[in-house]
Design a binder for these strands. Structure first.
Lengths: 337, 337
DNA sequence: CCACCGGCTGGAAGCGCTTCCAGGAAGGTT
DNA sequence: AACCTTCCTGGAAGCGCTTCCAGCCGGTGG
């Protein structure tokens, strides 16, 4: 422990005094504002360096009405859901962009009512400059809360029933079509699907892509069962489908986890994957490489989603008018189809 | 769009005016401070409700010198590392505790030098009230940076060479011992280990636990190879060990991912798990349930780690003196040992 | 030589809140 | 009745920064 420890952070006044100029002059130097003579600049910069001055974030925020913080709000009922690697990827993308700026990230997981109220407080109390919202359920109250604040807001994914002005979404429909077309290209005709929850847009879109591809090919859906986006859900749904359509020859699973569950059930039922039944998943998470056989799936650019959301928010904050974005998905071929 | 939109948030002055009291009286009501008459309280509360008043966070922060934000700092070189489900679990734990308070979470992923500078700015500029630091590498510069700020700081895990005053850590040593003892209990005697990087305490502790258990049993380490905490690393290390000690009969892997890689290699080499070679992992992440056979592993209470770190930080901020914590680990038996 | 212009400057007024303090109004004690 | 508590009150001084503005300066063009 050196003796320098307990010293308070110097203030702008102190810096100005030391540099022998007024506080406003010092402020101008700090903020790279014009109308500063060379001599003044030098003096202030010297003082800043010597005193180890750092502008106090809070004071600046109060004066400028800008906090320098953006919120990433992840709304969900199940607190455990956040453990899904999907969000980690989003955050990596978000951070990568923020790292280039002076903004910081507030991460808000609002599940309980209590949490939601707390969040509302943060947003309304002008605690952040902008909001990135990932509202998973169709009718999430957070959508409205965010809107009320009047703060720049961008959505990751879209609500079920509305189209926000600013959003970034993956091309779920196109991806599902891609997957289904791939199965069709393999000569499969009895293609079933295990969908995600229909209460979320992502579930509905992926189902729709599947349906469209079949219709375009002159076929019709051979079996559809809804599941949640879990392995267990996928397994249960697969069991149902197998009972209902014993002769199915392909399945499009709306997520990798669902696919993993489905493959397990297929293996246990003695159906060879991909020979008897071809399987395609969606997301391209780590789990896709660990199924047996490895999963052919639709890759969704999750980090890019985070990055683009952040860029869009920055644009909004800067007063520009960005345009909503749909990110392309692509098929990744592995062993299961 | 209703016509009410562009209205500015009301200020405390306006509320006070409407309630017919002074600003200080209004402030007292808002903050539940004593010395407020019943009448005053009622009047202010009525005005607050009618005007939809929310105290401005920034202004309050400036006056109280408390931001209401705590930072979770995750230091790492590889930006992708954050995708590890470990951190998601920590965050879930942290959030769960914060949800009960009025604090918010700033998530700081500092990888690049640029990012580190930006973070230093946030911390020194009094942008947060406290720091939770997960410094993964032994000599992380962030440890020093955090210390300089003088802010309450708690560590998740411990640096390689120092013992911070306040930390929460898993009982890595005890867990490793547990795992090794389990293998010994199975009658295995030619037990090798695949360690994590020795630049991190967690790697060193788990190795030490393995060694201690063997020594206690009158045996000595049968083979030790270092790997990073990845599946590929585990696979490579297993290959090396198999070449060096063809007759090994058990492996203690310092993480589940390492174990997954090792099991894959063992399967490919025609060694039956657990008959020929028993395998125990560490962490108990999702992947442990998806290996073949499912992985016997040491459970580490990750969410609890997040929770306890947060509680500890809250205590520090409140001026109390908490005590460092080591969280127990326990063996989860599945198929691999 | 004078009016004028442009770049710098410091003073002062905020940003919206907390908190210290002196003072006033009741209520209780000898 | 005089005094002392006790409780509540509003005024005022901050918290540390930005930004508007009036004023000063030397220099240019007429």
């Amino acid at each position: 422990m050196t003796a320098t420890a307990p010293r308070r952070q110097p203030t702008l006044d102190e810096v100005a005094a030391r540099a022998g100029v007024s506080r406003s002059a010092a402020s101008r130097v700090i903020n790279q504002a014009p109308h500063v003579s060379h001599a003044t600049r030098e003096a202030v910069e010297k003082a800043v360096k010597e005193m180890g001055y750092r502008p106090n974030r809070t004071a600046r925020a109060l004066a400028t009405r800008q906090t320098g913080i953006v919120a990433l709000v992840i709304s969900h009922d199940d607190p455990g859901l956040f453990a899904d690697p999907f969000f980690a990827q989003v955050i990596v993308g978000v951070s990568a962009v923020l790292e280039e700026t002076d903004l910081h990230l507030a991460l808000c997981l609002a599940s309980s009512e209590r949490g939601r109220a707390r969040l509302t407080g943060l947003l309304h109390a002008r605690g952040v400059d902008g909001i990135m919202l990932m509202a998973l359920d169709g009718d999430d109250p957070l959508t409205g809360i965010a809107e009320e604040t009047g703060l720049p807001t961008v959505h990751g994914g879209r609500p079920l029933d509305s189209e926000p002005k600013w959003f970034v979404d993956s091309d779920n429909l196109g991806g599902a079509r891609l997957a289904t077309e791939h199965l069709l290209g393999l000569g499969r005709t009895r293609i079933v699907t295990i969908t995600g929850p229909m209460t979320a847009r992502v579930g509905a879109s992926r189902l729709r892509g599947y349906q469209e591809a079949l219709i375009m090919a002159g076929l019709s859906p051979y079996g559809t069962v809804e599941a949640d986006f879990t392995e267990a859900g996928g397994a249960a749904a697969m069991t149902t489908l197998l009972a209902r359509r014993p002769d199915l020859d392909a399945v499009f699973a709306a997520s990798d986890k669902i696919a993993a569950g489905a493959i397990r059930v297929l293996n246990e039922a003695g159906r060879a994957v991909p020979e008897d039944v071809a399987v395609v998943g969606f997301d391209d998470l780590d789990v896709a490489e660990r199924t047996d056989p490895p999963l052919t799936t639709v890759h969704q650019p999750i980090q890019a989603l985070g990055r683009e959301m952040t860029r869009m928010l920055l644009a909004l904050i800067a007063g520009r008018e960005p345009t909503a974005l749909i990110l392309p998905t692509r098929l990744v071929r592995r062993g299961s189809a």
